[in-house]
Amino acid sequence: MKITLRYFASVREQVGTAQESLELPEGVASVGAVRELLVARGGAWAEALGLARPVRMAHQQVMCGPDTAVSDGAEVAFFPPVTGG
């Protein structure tokens, strides 16, 4: 399953990219599992998206929790709780 990841505000700054495409490995089927996969990259990814960090998530531009199922071709976004404009 292939998805598009989008990063906003300080998360984008920490990981150094605004978006990427990702082919999910077998067994990664929820937004929370995607987050854990990214944290496993280590470094800036673990720092920006670590489970102790307050990070909001969205699936198909709708706020969601970690148990939300990811669909093929979906957009999954990560951002801090408050973003400025």
Score class of each variant (00 low, 15 high):
residue 13 E to W: 10
residue 14 Q to L: 13
residue 16 G to C: 01
residue 16 G to R: 03
residue 16 G to S: 02
residue 16 G to D: 00
residue 17 T to E: 03
residue 17 T to L: 02
residue 18 A to Q: 10
residue 19 Q to N: 11
residue 21 S to D: 14
residue 24 L to F: 00
residue 24 L to P: 00
residue 26 E to G: 07
residue 26 E to Q: 05
residue 30 S to H: 07
residue 33 A to D: 07
residue 33 A to G: 09
residue 37 L to A: 06
residue 38 L to D: 00
residue 38 L to F: 02
residue 38 L to C: 03
residue 38 L to Q: 01
residue 39 V to H: 07
residue 39 V to E: 06
residue 42 G to L: 04
residue 42 G to P: 08
residue 45 W to S: 10
residue 45 W to D: 11
residue 48 A to R: 00
residue 49 L to E: 02
residue 49 L to F: 05
residue 49 L to W: 01
residue 51 L to F: 08
residue 51 L to W: 03
residue 52 A to Q: 10
residue 53 R to V: 11
residue 55 V to Q: 05
residue 56 R to Y: 08
residue 56 R to K: 12
residue 57 M to L: 12
residue 57 M to S: 09
residue 58 A to E: 08
residue 59 H to I: 10
residue 59 H to P: 04
residue 59 H to T: 10
residue 60 Q to F: 12
residue 60 Q to S: 15
residue 62 V to H: 13
residue 62 V to A: 12
residue 62 V to I: 14
residue 63 M to W: 15
residue 63 M to P: 15
residue 64 C to V: 03
residue 64 C to W: 01
residue 64 C to L: 07
residue 65 G to Q: 09
residue 65 G to K: 06
residue 65 G to C: 07
residue 66 P to K: 12
residue 67 D to P: 10
residue 68 T to M: 14
residue 69 A to S: 08
residue 71 S to K: 13
residue 71 S to G: 15
residue 73 G to N: 05
residue 73 G to D: 05
residue 76 V to L: 11
residue 76 V to Q: 05
residue 76 V to W: 05
residue 78 F to I: 02
residue 79 F to G: 07
residue 79 F to C: 11
residue 79 F to T: 07
residue 80 P to L: 04
residue 80 P to I: 01
residue 80 P to E: 04
residue 80 P to K: 01
residue 81 P to S: 08
residue 81 P to F: 08
residue 82 V to R: 09
